[in-house]
Simulated assay, not measured.
Amino acid sequence: MATTRSAVWIVTKYDGTEKKWERELKGRDFTRNQMCYVIRMLACTDLTSEEAIDSIDPSTQTGHLKWSEENGVISCGDNPHYVARQVP
């Protein structure tokens, strides 16, 4: 019986349109929700302490950690920002 390889997630960091970093997550079964969490945590690494607090404070909620999804590509962050996509 042939085994099927699970899809791989490609996570990329962009600064504007310039690719700064990319990682392929091989052999890991991340759900869509888990990947949203992963890229939100990566986006946190580019925030100052004040921005991190403001992004979760209900009175300010800046949107720094807001994620979106379009055509199967998940993104999070202002600039720099992170995107994640699955490939077979």
Rank of each mutant, 00 (worst) to 15 (best):
R23S: 07
E22D: 06
G27L: 08
N33Y: 09
S55K: 03
S59V: 05
T17S: 13
E24G: 00
R28I: 01
V11W: 00
A52W: 10
T48W: 07
F30E: 08
L47D: 12
Q34I: 00
L42P: 00
S49A: 14
Q34W: 02
R40C: 01
Q61M: 15
R40G: 02
A43F: 01
E24M: 05
W21E: 12
L42W: 05
Q34R: 14
G63E: 09
V11C: 01
G16K: 05
G27I: 00
C44D: 05
Q34C: 04
E18I: 07
G16P: 02
V38S: 02
A52R: 15
Y14H: 12
D15R: 14
T17P: 06
T45I: 00
S55I: 00
D15G: 14
I10H: 09
G63W: 03
D29C: 00
E51I: 01
N33E: 15
I39P: 02
G16S: 08
E50Y: 01
S59N: 08
S49N: 14
F30A: 11
V38C: 04
M41C: 09
V38K: 06
K20P: 06
V11S: 00
N33G: 12
Y14T: 13
R40M: 02
M35K: 07
L25M: 10
T62P: 08
T60M: 11
T31I: 03
E50R: 14
Y37M: 13
V11A: 03
R40L: 00
M41T: 09
